[in-house]
């Protein structure tokens, strides 16, 4: 048993990708907790899709692709805010417009340069964790260090700000700076996750562990710690599944995460579907939901 578990670790590429998967899982769970409580899950999706042209341009210019992706992410949030504040268009619509435009631009750019270089669009879309280099590991660790330091140092201010923006602003906290800081954290985390799961699946790592933990515990820092535990478990399990059954690594991690969420959703002591029926009629909640659906359709 132990031998089987140790077997993949003799390959240095597996060591590197496991480290990246775990570190990315940790920072995604922490930053994703803020996304979830602020109802900004869509923003995570928007930023992750928007970084694509930045990756392509950085690659063309020979710059660090992490930097390119980060800059593109920041520009996209600026556009989203511009549309939202200078017109009556709502935030979700603004996000939809900007992120699909950036995504399309990114795909166009990468497809064009793909012919002359040896890069692969699929690696950007779905990640290429088995291909991470020592430099990638270093960059990921640096980003993780920054993200976790900022969250630890600003924890009480960010808690106040994300819970009660007006109250925080009224006592004179620099809410615009805190907001910018939060956006930076989201951007950095997404950029660090691209190698592991790609732009399309990163949303799952951001919000699913946090949402799962939210079903089980009651304070933000507990959501973060439990989310980290869930994410690390899923990262390791996903990597092993992908090694032994020859599955794509990113999707394997995401599927394990989603599986854990389903368990919590069904069996959470506080709010599970099976453990916490919404009425005291004794009927199992899910049957009632189904009945409701059928009755609603008949009407």
């Amino acid at each position: 048993m132990l031998e089987t578990l140790l077997e993949p670790l003799q390959y240095s590429f597996m060591q590197r990708s496991l480290i990246v998967a775990i570190v990315v899982g940790i920072i995604c769970a922490v930053v994703g907790s803020y996304l979830m409580v602020q109802r900004l899950a869509l923003l995570g999706d928007a930023i992750s899709h928007s970084v694509l042209p930045g990756l392509a341009i950085a690659y063309l210019m020979g710059a660090n692709i992490f930097v390119g992706a980060f800059v593109a992410g920041i520009i996209s949030t600026i556009f989203i805010n511009l549309i939202r504040t200078r017109s009556n268009i709502k935030e979700d619509t603004a996000m939809g417009i900007v992120f699909s435009a950036f995504f399309a631009l990114g795909i166009t750019l990468i497809t064009t340069i793909q012919k002359d270089t040896k890069i692969d669009l699929n690696h950007f879309l779905f990640g290429n964790i088995l291909g991470v280099t020592a430099a990638d590991v270093r960059d990921t660790l640096i980003i993780a260090f920054i993200v976790i330091s900022v969250v630890v140092l600003l924890y009480k201010e960010l808690l106040f700000y994300t819970f009660d923006k007006l109250g925080a602003q009224a006592v004179g906290l620099p809410v615009n700076l805190l907001d910018l800081g939060l956006m930076m954290l989201i951007g950095l985390t997404i950029v660090a996750s691209l190698k592991a799961v790609g732009v399309i699946l990163v949303l799952s790592l951001l919000i699913t562990p946090a949402a799962t933990a939210y079903l089980l515990v009651e304070r933000l820092h507990q959501v973060m710690f439990l989310g980290v535990a869930i994410a690390v478990t899923a990262s390791i399990a996903g990597m092993y599944l992908s090694y032994f059954y020859n599955l794509p690594s990113g999707p394997a991690i995401v599927l394990v995460t989603s599986g854990i969420f389903i368990l919590a959703f069904l069996f959470s002591p506080g709010q599970g579907v099976f453990t916490h029926p919404p009425s005291n009629s004794g009927q199992i909640a899910i049957l009632k939901e189904l009945k409701g659906l059928i009755l609603a359709n008949r009407r």
């Binding site: 106040f160 939210y214 304070r219």
Partner: peptide, 29 residues
Amino acid sequence: KVAYVPQRSQIDWTYPVTVWDVVMMGRVR
């Protein structure tokens, strides 16, 4: 020097915080 309590509708009551967490927000500044 200002304490401000916003309208109920401004607050997300499903946010994962306890009573103690909220009270201590008054000590952040």
